[in-house]
């Protein structure tokens, strides 16, 4: 019998192959985070010895960590991939949509407009994403093949049942499927897979010294050009790492001395419980919960 990690890997590879053989023009949504990096690795394994048959799509908020972009470009060059970057800023300007404002001007919510534009431009009928059901409530409701209508809307009430993980990728022209091969993985599974497969990650995931803005509740935000500083704000230098990497305006760091994969796994095993308990039970209350908590430094 397959061990848990191999089982999850086999399931993901099966889903990835079905994505390719059922859809006409699927792409990989690549954020530069650990989940999408793992996904690229799985896609490689799924089609090995042939090359990755998908393009990468990065919806760029313009608020990326420089390390993420450097890592992305290196990966693309090494694997000879095609990368399409859809700039959120350009999409906003073109559609006369006001940009995010405030102390933490997160463009997270504005990303979907840019994604829809990229899907239309490149004619993608499916996008593979690294979303996991253990992340948050809304994600937990997603099917492996999650259907989007002509307007890009998700209808949680009318989802296609997937008994025995049998996948139905039939759509009408203009509709789209989001595909989540890592649905059944937890954060710890992802890290154990990174260890087993020796997968390289951006340095942001490991402990380093960084100048941070300390919020009143103790949360740490990486000091960066996109956050507006007030006179009352305090900047502190801390040993931190990131647990998720996203828009710099809304991704909090955690204090950590975990400098390598083994140490991160040890760290997660002791606090994993906390994440699980809280995300599992509280995140179900509101879709915004996870994001709210990330801003508050919850990890």
């Amino acid at each position: 019998m397959l061990d848990a990690l191999s089982f999850l890997e086999a399931q993901a590879i099966s889903i990835i192959r079905e994505a390719y053989f059922q859809c006409k023009n699927p792409s990989i949504l690549f954020s530069g985070g650990k989940d999408s990096i793992c996904m690229v690795h799985l896609v490689r394994k799924a089609f090995f010895p042939e090359a990755i048959p998908f393009e990468l799509l990065h919806v760029d908020t313009g608020h990326n960590f420089p390390e993420t972009l450097a890592f992305r470009d290196r990966l693309v060059a090494q694997l000879h991939l095609t990368l399409n970057v859809q700039s959120v800023v350009d999409t906003l300007a073109k559609n006369k949509i006001p940009d995010a404002t405030g102390k933490f001007p997160s463009r997270n919510a504005l990303q979907s407009v840019a994604l829809l534009e990229a899907i239309a431009t490149h004619g993608y009928d499916a996008c593979l994403g690294g979303g996991r059901r253990d992340e948050e409530k809304a994600r937990a409701k997603e099917r492996l093949f999650s259907f989007r209508d002509l307007q890009g809307n998700w209808n949680p009430l009318g989802q296609r049942p997937e008994p025995w993980n049998l996948l139905n990728g039939h759509i009408f022209s203009g509709e789209n499927i989001r595909i989540f091969p890592l649905s059944n993985w937890t954060e710890l599974d992802v890290w154990e897979y990174i260890r087993r497969e020796n997968i390289e990650l951006p340095s942001l995931y490991f402990s380093h010294s960084r100048l941070c803005l300390q919020l009143p509740d103790g949360a740490l935000m990486a000091f960066n050009p996109y956050i507006q500083l007030d006179s009352s704000d305090t900047l502190v230098e801390k040993k931190v790492r990131f647990r998720t990497i996203g828009d710099m305006t809304c991704t909090a760091a955690i204090e950590s001395t975990a400098a390598n994969v083994d140490q991160v796994i040890e760290e997660l095993k002791t606090c994993m419980v906390s994440e699980r308990g809280a995300t599992r039970l509280d995140d179900r209350i509101s879709d915004a919960g996870m994001e709210d908590r990330k801003i508050k430094g919850y990890f």
């Binding site: 606090c271 419980v273 906390s274 699980r276 308990g277 809280a278 039970l281």
Partner: peptide, 8 residues
């Protein structure tokens, strides 16, 4: 023991 002390 699958829940953290803070949740409990």
């Amino acid at each position: 023991n699958a829940l953290s002390t803070d949740v409990i």
